[in-house]
Simulated assay, not measured.
Amino acid sequence: MSIELRRHVNALVSDFAAEYGEVDLVRRRVECDPAEHDAVVASFDSFGVVGGAGVWIVWDGAVLLARYERADGWIEPGAGRRPGESYTECAKRGVRETAGTEVAIERLAQVQLVYLDDPTGRPPVPSPYVAFRGSIASGAPVPDADAAATDTIGSGPNPGTDGGQTPGGEPTAVGRPSVAPDGTPVALRWAEEPPEELAYDQLSELPLDGRDGQRM
C-alpha cells in the first residue's frame, strides 16, 4: 500500500470529523483477487482517486435501494469516484445516474474503510466508501414504496411492466430495470424491510429514523 494512499484515508476521516463533528467509522475486510488489489493502488497512484460514495434516502419508513449487476446485493444508489470529484459530488452523481433524480445531501451517515485483501500476503489496501443521508430534491420519479420491485436484473428496460404512481399522481417505473449511462442495468425499490441480499450488513438497520426524506 502506498504511503500517499494511507495519508489520503487518514485525511479523509479527519476532514469529515472537522466538517460534521462526528464520524461513524466502520472497518470491513473483504477478499479480492490480485488484479482488483492492483487496480485500486494503480488508480490512486495515477489519478489520486479511490473509493466511492452513495446516499441513504429514507421516506415514510422505507429506504431507496438499487441492485447493480456486478454488486453482491442491494445497496443505496451511488457510484465510484472520478478524477477531481469530491465524495459529495460522487454521491450526487451516483443517485442521478441510477435513479434519474437530483438529491439533497443532508448529513454524513457513515464512512466505511473497506480493506481489500488478496491471497498474495500483501497488506490489505483501503478503499473508502462514504454514505450520506439525503432526500430527493428534484427530477424523475422513482419506484413507489408500495409496489413490488423485481429482484431479477434484466438487460434493459422492460416496456411490458406496468408502473405505479407517486403521491403526486405521476407514473413510476416500478419493477422495471433501468440502465445506467455505462450500460449497467439496475433495479430500484423502496424497501420497508431489508431484502435478503444486502451489499453490506449496516443496511439492515435502515430505515433508522425514517420520515425525514421526501419522495417525488
Rank of each mutant, 00 (worst) to 15 (best):
A199M: 11
G139V: 04
E102L: 08
Y87A: 14
R82Q: 12
V111G: 00
D201S: 11
A79M: 13
G100L: 05
A131E: 07
T184E: 04
A191E: 12
A187D: 11
R82N: 09
R176M: 11
D151Q: 13
P157Y: 06
A91H: 06
D182I: 04
T161Q: 08
V111Q: 00
E196G: 12
G139Y: 05
E192N: 12
A191M: 05
P126K: 05
V174I: 07
T98F: 03
G80R: 15
E97Y: 02
G169Y: 08
P128R: 01
R82L: 09
P181T: 05
P124K: 08
G73F: 01
V125M: 08
R176N: 14
D201W: 03
L113G: 02
E170W: 15
A109R: 11
I136D: 02
G156I: 07
P159Q: 05
A79F: 09
C90G: 03
A131G: 06
S155Y: 13
G73Q: 04
T88E: 13
P171E: 05
A148C: 13
P77L: 11
G100V: 02
D117Y: 01
A104C: 09
I153W: 06
D144K: 10
T88R: 13
G164S: 08
A180M: 15
L203K: 08
V114A: 03
G183W: 08
D201F: 04
V174C: 15
G121E: 00
Q110F: 09
S86F: 15
V186C: 09
D144F: 14
R189D: 08
D201K: 02
E85W: 01
A131L: 11
V111I: 15
W190Y: 11
T166D: 07
D182N: 04
E196C: 06
Y115V: 12
P143Q: 06
E170P: 04
V174T: 13
R133N: 09
V114P: 00
A187H: 03
G160M: 03
R176G: 14
R82E: 13
R122E: 09
I153K: 01
A109C: 01
Q110A: 12
P167D: 04
V111L: 08
P83M: 06
T88K: 12
Q165E: 13
S127Q: 11
R82W: 05
D162A: 12
G154R: 15
L203W: 03
A137Y: 04
P177L: 07
V114G: 03
G84T: 02
T150H: 02
E192L: 07
P194T: 06
L203F: 02
P194Y: 03
E102K: 06
D118L: 02
D144M: 03
E97N: 01
P119M: 07
V114T: 13
K92N: 02
P185W: 00
Q112R: 09
